[in-house]
């Protein structure tokens, strides 16, 4: 890089930094402030007294908070491996030579789930998995599976939500892994094919090193996205039945905007933010490891 002045850089960057400080950082500081106060919107007479760390203490001892976080983790460790497995299978199909027209059709069709508005994904899920007139039960009936109560049963509702998540996010994995596969030098791959007919061995010894960065990215980004998961659940199950599908964001929204306990909701949000920051540190550390900056 040249030795010229860096002053212009400041002017180029300042507006975006100021904007992000104002809309991204200031609210977070305000949330921290609120989290130290008792603040219920539906109790204006009670005012907004300072309560120190009381809200955080409530978060730590709140079984519902931790069980919704636990549920979020369960969701994550169930959905993501499925997405990676199916995503890898699809990526290998798309990478394989031949049938080039069919492959481009498949590639384009993968865009549909990714572009579908999350809230609408939930609405579609609620329609498809309806016990009485949903098409899921109808299709399962063709292969003799009895009528399943998808959204009324806690386990099945969780499963249905995972199915919709798998539908929406597997293409993301596919496209990332496909990008990794295309990084494998053609000659190396062809040489390997001549040596062994086993696709599995090629995958393990030749392609895997190129897939690893993508896999790391998938793991971290999907974790962040599951912590964000709200829209789809809100429209599909609203966290029910019972609390079967109440993931962390749904729970915080309920405390904040249904119980209107904004002090507690802020404390919960701050705790969640800590998780988010840890995640992004990991992302930066493992994914951007070699970024030339």
């Amino acid at each position: 890089m040249s030795s010229r002045s860096n002053t212009p850089a400041f002017w180029f960057i300042a507006p975006s930094v100021i904007a992000l400080l104002a809309i991204g950082l200031a609210p977070i500081l305000f949330a921290v402030f609120n989290s130290l106060h008792e603040y219920n919107l539906a109790r204006p007479a009670a005012g907004k007294p300072f309560v120190g760390l009381e809200n955080y203490l409530t978060v730590l001892t709140d079984g519902t908070f931790w069980s919704s976080l636990g549920r979020t983790v369960t969701f994550l460790v169930t959905a993501v491996p499925i997405q990676i497995a199916i995503g890898l299978w699809a990526a290998l199909l798309l990478h394989r030579p031949g049938l080039s027209f069919m492959r481009s059709v498949a590639r384009v069709s993968l865009v549909i789930p990714l572009a579908t508005t999350y809230a609408v994904v939930g609405l579609i899920g609620r329609l498809i998995f309806n016990r009485e007139f949903g098409v899921a039960n109808d299709m399962l009936g063709w292969v003799g599976i009895p009528v399943t109560d998808w959204l009324g049963d806690p386990t099945m509702a969780f499963v249905a939500l995972i199915i919709m998540d798998v539908w929406q996010w597997t293409p993301f994995c596919t496209l990332i892994l496909l990008a990794g596969l295309s990084m494998v030098p053609k000659e190396t791959e062809e040489a390997a094919r001549l040596e062994t007919p086993s696709a599995l061995r090629i995958l393990r010894h030749v392609q895997m090193p190129f897939l690893l960065p993508g896999l790391t990215a998938i793991l971290i980004l999907r974790t962040a996205d599951v912590l964000k998961e709200f829209d789809k659940i809100f429209t599909m199950t609203r966290g029910g039945p019972g609390a079967a599908t109440e993931l962390i964001s749904v729970y915080i929204q309920r405390v904040g905007f249904r119980v209107f306990d904004l002090g507690l909701a802020s404390a919960q949000a701050v705790v969640l933010l800590v998780f988010c920051i840890v995640l992004s540190r990991l992302y930066i550390r493992y994914v951007y490891k070699e970024a030339e900056l």
């Binding site: 009485e132 109560d149 959204l151 039945p241």
Partner: peptide, 20 residues
């Protein structure tokens, strides 16, 4: 019906209205 914990007014009224 199974899944009664997912029945809101609409579902209950509909279950009667449809003869379920």
């Amino acid at each position: 019906p199974p899944g009664i914990v997912d029945y809101d007014h609409a579902e209950a009224v509909d279950a009667l209205a449809q003869g379920q």
